[in-house]
Design a protein around this nucleic acid. Structure first.
Length: 272
DNA sequence: CACCAGGTAGGAT
DNA sequence: ATCCTACATGGT
């Protein structure tokens, strides 16, 4: 079914690594369901991707690849120059060696807003679990991949009238419910706003502070200058840079630098 | 048992 | 403006 016909083969050559992205903490639904086999979901689309050595096989038609997945994985952006400009920093050189296949995804704005409101003072494991429950219970069924039924991320309307207790959102539940009450217009208009205006609009919503707003700017609006500071990034700046790190040095891709730092530092620390 | 997790709201200073 | 703390839940 999902694997009939031919996949679109993208020659990633280290520029796209799905395992690294799935472990990078920027998204909560890119899942390795089998060795080197991933399920990606965005909006009303889901796809089976087989990540082999230097190529990713996307099991979808060329039109869907071009209009949905290439944009989602930011494949039309050239990261080479970003990488070149990090080479003078030893920590970033290491981070690139470990996470050079990370990209900044262009995720659905609504989904990004909800998932990062859930993320506050929470663990990636629990966020992922909560999001999975929300999708399974309240999302539209899309298709089956690897014997699993895949669901879309639920709409605001559906979540508003739902019993969210099974997702164990804790004290964040009312924040999510309040988010649902904003009309679609807010989310439609945000992409047209400047970074500053968009951030201000987001931070006026309950449950969205500076850090979560920065995550939504980066992962939901692809504002590459946004540099979210979570506990790990703060720790890392303290530890590796002795308090002196200026993301302004990386104008135009500071958010990408942040992802690499987060991924590398966190993995290193969790390794023992 | 204490402490932590991709923080923030609301109140006190 | 800046500092302080309670906050649900599950894992270590």
């Amino acid at each position: 079914m999902m694997t009939e016909g031919n996949p679109v083969v993208y020659h990633s050559l280290g520029e796209l690594n799905l395992r690294q992205i799935s472990e990078s903490g920027q998204c909560f639904r890119l899942k390795e369901y089998d060795k080197n086999k991933f399920i990606a979901v965005t909006g009303a689309h889901a796809v089976d991707i087989h990540d082999q050595r230097n190529a990713c096989a996307f099991w979808c038609g060329p039109d869907e690849f071009r209009t949905v997945w290439a944009p989602y994985f930011d494949l039309d952006t050239d990261y080479e120059e970003f990488k070149a400009r990090m080479q003078d920093d030893p920590f970033l050189r290491d981070a690139l060696r470990q996470g050079g296949g990370i990209r900044i995804l262009r995720q659905d704005l609504w989904e990004t807003a909800v998932t990062f409101v859930i993320s506050q003072n929470n663990s990636i494991r629990r966020i992922t679990k909560s999001v999975e429950i929300l999708c399974e219970r309240f999302g539209t069924p899309l298709k089956e991949i690897g014997g699993r039924q895949i669901y879309a991320f639920p709409t605001a309307g559906r979540l508003l009238s739902a019993d969210l207790s099974a997702a164990s959102l804790g004290y964040r539940e009312p924040y999510v419910r309040e988010l649902c009450k904003y009309g679609d217009s807010v989310w439609r208009e945000l992409p047209a706003l400047s970074d500053g205006q968009a951030k201000k609009t987001l931070m006026a919503m309950r449950g969205i502070g500076e850090k979560v707003a920065n995550c939504i700017l980066l992962f939901g609006l692809h504002r590459m200058d946004s540099y979210p500071r979570d506990v790990w990034v703060n720790r890392l700046i303290d530890d590796v840079y002795h308090g002196g790190f200026d993301p302004g040095k990386y104008a135009g891709f500071a958010g990408y630098v942040q992802q690499l730092q987060f991924y590398h530092y966190r993995n290193r620390r969790l390794a023992h």
